[in-house]
Design a protein around this nucleic acid. Structure first.
Lengths: 107, 107
DNA sequence: AACAGGCATAGCTCATCGGCTATGTGGATG
DNA sequence: CATCCACATAGCCGATGAGCTATGCCTGTT
């Protein structure tokens, strides 16, 4: 029973995988070969990581002849933003409640 | 050479650990015992996770007699927000929640 | 048809890590 | 001082996962 947050955090936790995603965000669509050239790991490893990124919805693949082009799907980061925002809002609301309490005690 | 993003993602990738952090965000300061009661894992495991969260700067501990109180340190999420924001900036996409969060965290 | 190139899959190894139980430490309490 | 309680630490084990090499599949080329 793993929710969307789980998948995102686990997927982005690996440095190699995150680096691949970052490159796709910065430089746009790339082939597996182009990604492998600077990844520092073997081609099968790159393919595997891209598969995991795809399963998490973070990238999309497009086949053109015998090469596969990958590109970042930024929308998949939404749950991450939501989660962070939610944590912040809870924290903020408790802070507000404390301020409220202090204000009332001041009277 | 593990940067701040690495530590944050890896720390939050574990469901049990993330659940602990979420509870501290939602419900405020808690003792180890209180956290253990609903964590679904043993007390040593909870202590260990809290130690990892602390090392990542996500929580803070306060000793009071023989119990230890833990609380969330929301500021530690900043690098996460920055990273997401950076990725998003390459897309020139609008993330209202993110902008909102940045504004609030900027005090 | 035969071959070469680009990528995916399979199968393996090794390190990491999350869980447990047992034990240590240090503050309250009688 | 003896004891109990709250928590931390130590040590072990099984599962997960990231890396590798070898190989398969498909496409384009000659």
């Amino acid at each position: 029973m793993s929710d969307a947050h789980d998948v995102l955090f686990r997927t982005l936790a690996d440095p190699t995988r995150r680096a691949l995603f970052e490159r796709l965000c910065r430089e746009g669509e790339k082939t597996v070969g182009a990604l492998t050239a600077r990844a520092g790991v073997s081609q099968p490893v790159v393919s595997k990581h891209l598969g995991i990124l795809k399963q998490a919805g973070l990238v999309r693949d497009r086949h053109e002849g015998r090469q596969t082009h990958y590109s970042a799907q930024l929308g998949a980061l939404a749950p991450l933003v939501d989660w962070t925002s939610e944590m912040a809002s809870f924290w903020q609301s408790r802070f507000d409640a404390l301020e409220d309490l202090l204000k009332r005690m001041d009277q």
